[in-house]
Write a protein that binds this DNA or RNA. Structure first.
Length: 281
DNA sequence: AGCGCTGGCGGATTAGGTGA
DNA sequence: TCACCTAATCCGCCAGCGCT
């Protein structure tokens, strides 16, 4: 199968084969290229200011900004002119997140971003420093200490954004069975890949046919529709965020394997072809 | 020539009904 | 909750057109 993947957007080279987590301490002076990863990314800003372009939206960054990106997110960082941005950056594979942690993190559909106060930032800084120190030395229990620090940071983040979202917890939100919810989280994080009903059903520990029925009952849409909606939403965000990427590149980056099919679905969902949609922005 | 787009075709996959 | 079955839909491939 012929497939054009925009390789400049793939950053999996940052992690060696055996490693499942890496800690970086960066200082950048200019805009980073629009990109995404095959792994999760946790960032704490130490100094400087910038604008974070996340999935086509802009968010200000300053000391204490902490955010978590999933494999489904794409972003770029625009450093404020005349400044630099100093930050900790932890990248890790999904293996690092066990089921309870995944449920805790992704139970609600919201962005994992929060601006912490100075005392909180100092506390978080200690955790990041611990991870970096432990990563650089071969000592007994090293991996557990790193995992502990990672989990503490993630829980701090969840608690912080929970406070923000209390008012947003929808009363009308339909009750979704945990197995289906788990499958939905899986789809949300893997929609850019070739995922099948069988694979997602396995995540929910149900047989494909029964999963298909349950999914439809609980979400009011089919698995395919849900998957397509996520892909089209991602493609729309990319069309808005970057004029440098061609429609063909966006097609493959969004999880479609065929340009004509992508254009057909895009037009069906939005009423416009991808290029016309971009022209209207 | 390359890109964006349309449409047709056929195989693969999925949805949903039924019965156990 | 699952297996079986059938109809519907999806998806990949291809040909072709217009535009730059």
């Amino acid at each position: 199968m012929k497939q054009i993947v925009p390789d400049r957007l793939m950053l999996e080279d940052y992690m060696s084969n055996e490693a499942t987590l890496r800690v970086y301490h960066f200082e950048i002076f200019k805009t980073s290229l629009l990109h995404w990863h095959e792994f999760y990314e946790l960032v704490l800003v130490i100094a400087g200011t910038a604008t974070h372009g996340l999935n086509g939206k802009s968010i200000p960054l300053r000391r204490g900004s902490l955010f978590l990106l999933t494999p489904a997110d794409f972003h770029e960082i625009n450093v404020t002119p005349g400044e630099s941005l100093l930050f900790y950056n932890v990248i890790f594979s999904g293996i690092r997140l066990d089921e309870p942690l995944i449920n805790m993190l992704f139970e609600q559909d919201q962005q994992h971003y929060y601006d912490f106060t100075e005392p909180e930032t100092k506390r978080l800084e200690v955790e990041f420093t611990l991870m970096q120190t432990e990563e650089n030395q071969q000592q007994i229990g090293q991996d557990r200490l790193i995992q502990g620090a990672l989990e503490r940071i993630l829980i701090e983040l969840v608690r912080a954004i929970q406070v923000l979202s209390v008012a947003q917890i929808s009363i009308n939100k339909p009750l979704i069975q945990p197995s289906i919810r788990k499958a939905m989280i899986y789809i949300e994080h893997h929609f850019r890949e070739n995922i099948t009903l069988e694979e997602v059903a396995r995540q929910a520990q149900l047989v494909p046919n029964y999963f298909s029925t349950c999914f439809r009952k609980m979400t009011s849409i089919t698995f395919q529709q849900y998957l397509q909606d996520l892909r089209i939403h991602f493609a729309k965000s990319l069309l808005q965020a970057s004029r440098l990427l061609s429609v063909t590149e966006i097609c493959y980056a969004s999880g479609f394997n065929n340009l004509s099919h992508f254009i057909r679905v895009f037009k069906q969902k939005t009423g416009y072809s991808p290029n016309v949609f971009r022209g209207h922005l």
